[in-house]
Simulated scan of single mutants.
Amino acid sequence: MTQDFYCDRVLSGKTEMEKVYETENILAYYHTKPAYEVHIVAIPKKHIPSLTKINESDNDLFNELMNVVRIVASQVELEYGACRVITNLGDYQDSKHLHWHIVSGARS
């Protein structure tokens, strides 16, 4: 069984989080265990295992996700002067649910 914190805890409402931006299909929120001064996660509400596992039928959803990442990253860059946008794959990916980290500042 693969671990999916985002479906199992966040999207189910079992874990409290502070929303940053939300659409019908996408959620961006402050990371519950931030590794940076500013640490936001953007996820699709539909389960997709990772960037390399996106189906052709999910292209519109992926485009919507990337638009939310762009909007949130733009806000972070404007407020803090810089940001990084990161996704992990394979063994680097703790939760097997497509997600992007939008981060700024020093690593905690």
Rank of each mutant, 00 (worst) to 15 (best):
F62L: 15
I26Q: 02
A35C: 08
Q3T: 07
H97S: 01
Y36D: 02
V76W: 01
A35D: 06
S95F: 02
H101P: 02
Y29I: 00
N67K: 15
S50Y: 12
G105C: 04
Y6H: 02
R70P: 06
H39P: 08
L89N: 13
Y6N: 04
L27I: 11
V38M: 03
T52Y: 14
Y92G: 13
Y6W: 04
N67R: 14
T32A: 09
P49N: 08
T2Y: 05
E37V: 05
K19M: 00
E79F: 02
V69L: 14
R9E: 12
A73D: 07
M17F: 04
I43K: 07
G81Q: 04
Y30C: 08
V10P: 03
R84E: 11
V69K: 12
F62S: 11
I54T: 14
E79A: 09
D4M: 05
T2A: 05
K33C: 07
I71K: 13
N63R: 13
Y29L: 03
S74P: 03
L11V: 03
H39M: 05
E37I: 01
K33H: 11
L61S: 13
R9S: 06
R84P: 07
G13D: 07
Y21S: 05
R107H: 02
L89P: 02
G90D: 11
N67Y: 15
R70Q: 15
V41K: 01
S74D: 10
G13Y: 09
H99T: 11
Y92I: 05
Y92F: 15
A28Q: 02
Y92V: 03
S74K: 11
L51C: 13
V41I: 15
K33N: 11
Y29P: 04
P49E: 12
D58C: 09
S74N: 12
E77S: 02
K19C: 02
V10A: 02
G90Q: 08
N25R: 09
R70T: 13
E77V: 09
V41T: 12
H99E: 06
S12H: 09
S12E: 03
M17C: 03
E77K: 12
S74C: 03
H47I: 14
H99F: 11
P34S: 00
N67S: 13
L27E: 00
Y21Q: 04
N55G: 06
P49G: 03
D58Q: 14
F62M: 15
N55W: 05
N67C: 12
D60E: 13
D91W: 06
I86F: 07
Y21P: 01
P34V: 00
L27C: 06
A42T: 15
L51Y: 15
A73V: 07
E16M: 04
L65T: 14
D4S: 11
